[in-house]
Design a protein around this nucleic acid. Sequence first.
DNA 1: CGGAACCAGTTTTTT
DNA 2: ACTGGTTCCG
Length: 829
Amino acid sequence: MSHGFDEDDFPDRIPLSQQAMAMRAAPYLDGLNPAQRAAVEALDGPVLMLAGAGTGKTKALTTRIAHLLNTGTARPNEILAVTFTNKAAREMKLRVAGLLGQAIEGMPWLGTFHSVCVKLLRRHAELVGLKTNFTILDTDDQIRLLKQLIQAEGIDEKRWPARQLSHLIDGWKNRALTPDKVPVADAGAFNHRGVELYAAYQERLKTLNAVDFGDLLLHVVVIFQTHDDVLAQYQRWFRYILVDEYQDTNVAQYMWLRLLAGGHKNICCVGDDDQSIYGWRGAEVGNILRFEKDFPGAKVVRLEQNYRSTPHILAAASGVIAENAGRLGKELFTDRADGEKVRLIGHWDGEEEARWIGEEIEAMQAGTRGMRAFRLTEIAILVRASHQMRAFEDRFLTIGLPYRVIGGPRFYERREIRDAMAYFRLAVSQDDDLAFERIVNVPKRGLGEKAVQNIHLAARESGVSMLEGARIASGEGRVAGKGGKALGALVAHMDGWRAALHEAEARKEELRGLIGALNDPDVIEGNEAGADLAQSRQKTLEAAQKELTALGRAHLDLAERILEESGYVEMWQNDKTPEAPGRLENLKELIKALENFDNIQGFLEHVSLIMDNESDDSEDKVSIMTLHAAKGLEFPGVFLPGWEDGLFPSQRSMDESGLKGLEEERRLAYVGLTRAEEIAIVSFAGNRLVFGQWQSQMPSRFIDEIPPETVEVLTAPGLYGATQAAPKSDLGDRASRADVYNSPGWKRLQARSDQRGMSQPREAKTMVIDADAVSSYVEGDRVFHQKFGYGLVTGIEGDKLEIAFDKAGLKKVVASFVTAAEAAGDVPF
DNA sequence: CGGAACCAGTTTTTT
DNA sequence: ACTGGTTCCG
């Protein structure tokens, strides 16, 4: 079984020859500005690249790698380049290859912090008491485990939830604190049991031969700290280190980097202190602020020329971020000519805001907003918190505006995917007790708490895994009635799956051996017996290869078989909730994802670290995402709704982290504004439904911080006496834009926006009925909607249907967004 | 054991 | 408002 590392990644060092050092032509340097070029060419020693938003950071970073390789300064496997996301790593790989005009073979050490750590940890697992095939638990497993521990300690779960403990432990791990290193100041945490539980948790993980995400870094740091020889080896191997998004590193990552760079100090950190927005999950802006102290003599390069945004947008963002103290300081500038100012508009409530943005997008799409026509993919709505997305989704579904939510619940975190994965995990390694516990009663097999306890007991008595315990308990009739029978069946199925798995693998191995032998020239050559024999060999070879290819799909069949035989698919087929069809769809997708791997083992190995769900961006859709998810992206048109004190800046951040929290929120505002290339539209609502309660909102303090001369204040249609909905193609509404921003009353207007009615009354909305659109539905049809679930058509207006949804109530929805219920429910597997 | 009723927590997120 | 979890009852 592959454990994800390859000894070729750690070659012995051969001294570079003089010839290799000779500089080759470097055309890639020509496209750089002086700052970027300086950052690229300073190959040796510590370098801090302070790269403002849109200043060509990735370009500089990837060119630097290309330059290291092209000049022969380093070979691919001598460069350690770490990112935070798989996406960033992927892009870097691609772009380096593009620069060099060839696929770089190798770069085995370009990856996320976590993926690099997995590789290192697999290689040295025994140094921290693990086996090389340890499993990686995700947050769900982690919480499950902690819950068990809390229960075992007899602590009231209600008052001391496992989730809270997991955050506490994650926090310690982020700070590279093993249980014995937790400071006394934290001793009182979690009812004075926190440290003790942390220690118990780490013990339990060791027993399970498992690690959580935090451990990946922590263990490696511990190994480096306690084994000088191991550290020295990697210090020699990784001759050049590059770090992306350095402002997001936590203490553990910081220590990890410092340890590795300790010898040669050839470390290049790229980041932007103004875009540090992950403090709440342990990122330390201090790391980047302190760089020059940590690495005396460091070369600091500032990338300040912005290639993304118009001057107004840039000035607005700069004005806001200037309010923060303790910055390293950058002055972004651009060559671009004047473009649109940042637009600002207030609305009555969140729903109205969503409605206005919907109309505005349609107008932008049509090119009737005094600007060019935009494609929907060029437009993004960036929100502070994901719950804000719903208003937009609801609205866009109603008007039939295609949209895509970026981020959302990640594929591999969905229940059905995790359940399926647990079945796979158990089939692959029978001693995965966590997986067993997850699926033992999913689907319902009549195996409740009592039964699981009995199984646990049986396993304990014999010192075997839960699955073996289940075999014993079932064999001895220790689980009563229906459940006992079902348990026996489960164990039998599991045996069958495992046998199939091993059989396929063994056969593959055999075939590979056969093919290898047949291809071996020593065996074939020099055989006087003639062409006949050679021909028969050729035939055998072809047959073997054909079978091997066929076996390449064996694991797909097996995965499908597991989900079928376990009754898991059936469970969702019988499920009447609106999510069920989607879940079946996801299961099919999971099987499809297996195609990219040779076997289930390989799939499980990689999947635990890959959490991004790639959605195809081929269709023309508006993007909706959080500000956090937007970091690193750019769009010609950006809507920034919900700029209200309490929501943005978020009350929670300010309560929990005070001024630090506020400054992080401000950086978030900076990130949001700097995503925009041509137009940024900031909006706020006077009233908002928060946790089911209407709240009166004050415009965000950040609005006051945008320099007035960069802003154009829009007045929502309907204000100042207008009662008709704004004609979409009418430039006349520009006339109602008032330069009230400078007036003394502006702030008061903001404060009273809730009383004044900042936008049209909702009754004034116009219903556009498209007579040409003929719906294929009739009243009484049962339909399915991706978001609202099943419902009954109760009315038809043009291309819109009025539908009484079982769960979501009465809604008007564009017909193309629903499918006939029979079709949707009938998801073949 | 499974469904109904009740209750609490929830805003940012990658691996 | 909504979801997920727990508890109570048949």
